[in-house]
């Protein structure tokens, strides 16, 4: 993959926090909805932290000595000319090869900031933001999703529903959505229930295995 992370290796969990997302303070992300307090009482609330997204810290490349290395974005982009029209890795001769891009009609610089050697992300108004703040960037187009996220109705979480008793950890957009191909990819679900007697009205492709092992008859004790 070809994504770079923020430059410092950082804590495992980014403490973006309740303050940012849920508590409705004046942080940049919260600019759309009314403030939402997690609890009406005045007890101190535990923090909600957003997990670091599972993205590689740089671009994989092969060094002249044959070693695999991870390159920072600005290792190249600070010295190369920007191609502002580029919208796919297919157009490129080197680096970012094999990257699948399928995200509307956006170009690279719709989100990546060319002005600082692609070391940060770029909001629509030109403001630079750090990579880990990309939630804000996504929210520019995906407003309803951001709104739902801010209200705890989108994106996985663990921890306490009652923030007076404990904190929460939340997924980042990138835990589920590849920024370059955000549609959720197919995957094999957890195995279906092993009913003693399988429902007859489920689809044929999933029924054979179950009919083979169950079927009506006397139970195994007989």
């Amino acid at each position: 993959m070809d994504r770079e992370s923020h430059t410092n290796s950082g804590p495992f969990l980014l403490v973006l926090a309740v303050l940012l997302v849920l508590q409705g303070c004046s942080e940049p992300i919260d600019n759309s909805v009314e403030s939402v307090a997690a609890n009406s009482t005045l007890e101190p609330l535990f923090a909600t932290v957003i997990r670091e997204p599972p993205v590689p810290h740089g671009v994989r490349a092969v060094a002249p000595n044959g070693e695999e290395v991870s390159l920072q974005c600005n290792a190249c982009h600070s010295v190369r000319a920007h191609n502002l029209k580029s919208a796919s890795a297919v157009d490129l001769d080197e680096f970012h090869q094999g990257m699948h891009y399928q995200h509307g009609s956006l170009t690279c610089v719709s989100c990546h900031q060319p002005d600082d050697g692609y070391s940060s992300l770029r909001l629509a108004d030109g403001t630079s933001i750090a990579f880990f703040e990309s939630i804000q960037l996504c929210g520019q187009c995906h407003g309803p999703q951001l709104r739902d996220y801010e209200h705890g109705a989108h994106g996985g979480m663990t921890g306490y529903w009652d923030l007076t008793r404990g904190g929460r950890e939340r997924n980042h957009c990138l835990h589920c959505h590849d920024a370059h191909k955000p549609a959720y990819a197919d995957f094999q679900p957890v195995a279906p229930p092993r009913d003693r007697f399988a429902p007859a009205n489920h689809h044929a492709e999933s029924s054979e295995a179950f009919h083979a092992t169950s079927g009506l008859g006397d139970s195994h004790h007989e």
């Binding site: 996220y149 705890g152 996985g156 979480m157 306490y160 529903w161 007076t164 008793r165 589920c176 959720y184």
Partner: peptide
């Protein structure tokens, strides 16, 4: 005060509890 196990397991956040 904790979330139910099914909510914590949900990767997409389809579940809302409180």
């Amino acid at each position: 005060g904790r979330m139910p196990a099914c909510l914590e397991a949900c990767p997409t956040g389809a579940r809302v509890f409180g």
